[in-house]
């Protein structure tokens, strides 16, 4: 599969996987900063910063779960279309599904969790109507089409052809039945139209399921080690440079 290239980074990411490696590389990173600054960091600074590197949040170990295996896999599929693998890992590899599962289990109140799983259920129903199979059995390009449609509706894209739910009832089975009877060659195109015309008020605008999902995927990705050290850069400790040039090939701080 062809992966689109993202521009090369000027700063090599800190490569680390395990907790132990993490400790070592961060020590090294700080030592490097101290070296680069030509000893501008005092011995106390370096000692203090290094002392902090052995710390870990006391509660980080607990892992709760709220989603079924299928629901979690659906999250993984949707998340990987929102932030796919490029020259850096995508959302699934960065552990986003685990993060969202944990947030559903421990962070959100029951009503929010119910809203989220209801949103997942609607995604499955829409896949069923458009492609005749649930999301996980749809082809990757069909899954992507569905994600794009959800995204258009969540952002009120004019292409989504949304009309007021009060004036026009939501298009349901009758339309999709027609879609399924289409010839193979035109099926994809008509599915896209169908996907845009099949909508639910809960999937439209700022409060939509997809906006919630998108935000969770972003948080899960960019606060992960992969997102913060490979896709972006960790803002290094050591010095404050208030006003520096930013140009081609640079990257935002995580």
């Amino acid at each position: 599969m062809h992966l689109p290239k993202v521009r090369p980074r000027k700063f090599p990411p800190i490569q680390s996987r395990s907790a132990m490696n993490d400790l070592i590389t961060r020590r090294e990173a700080i030592a490097r900063v101290a070296y680069l600054l030509g000893g501008a960091l005092s011995a106390t600074t370096v000692a203090g910063v290094l002392a902090g590197c052995d710390r870990r949040a006391p509660e980080a170990a607990a892992k709760a779960s709220a989603l079924t295996a299928d629901q979690k896999e659906m999250v993984a599929v949707l998340a990987d279309h929102i932030l796919p693998e490029t020259d850096t890992p995508g959302a699934r590899t960065a552990g986003v599904p685990d993060f969202i599962d944990l947030m559903m289990a421990e962070y959100y109140p029951p009503e929010e969790r119910a809203r989220f799983t209801a949103g997942l259920a609607r995604v499955d129903q829409r896949a069923q109507r458009a492609f005749g199979v649930p999301l996980l059995r749809a082809k990757p390009e069909q899954q992507l089409q569905l994600v794009q449609a959800l995204n258009r509706q969540a952002f009120n894209d004019p292409a989504a052809q949304l009309t007021s739910p009060a004036e026009e009832p939501i298009l349901r089975e009758t339309e999709t039945e027609t879609g399924r009877s289409d010839a193979e060659g035109t099926q994809a195109a008509s599915a896209a139209v169908m996907l845009d015309r099949d909508w639910d008020p809960e999937d439209v605008g700022g409060q939509s399921f997809f906006r919630t999902l998108k935000e969770l995927v972003l948080v899960g990705y960019y606060t992960s080690e992969v997102g913060a050290t490979q896709e972006l850069r960790m803002n290094p400790m050591g010095t404050w440079r208030a006003d520096i040039p930013y140009g081609q090939g640079a990257q935002a701080w995580a």
Partner: peptide, 26 residues
Amino acid sequence: SRGGWSRGAARPEIGTELKQLLQDPG
């Protein structure tokens, strides 16, 4: 300050386009 990755939640882009956008500060 310059916008960070969290601004992506309010952006209509998805996929590679979204990743690319958020590699730069806002």
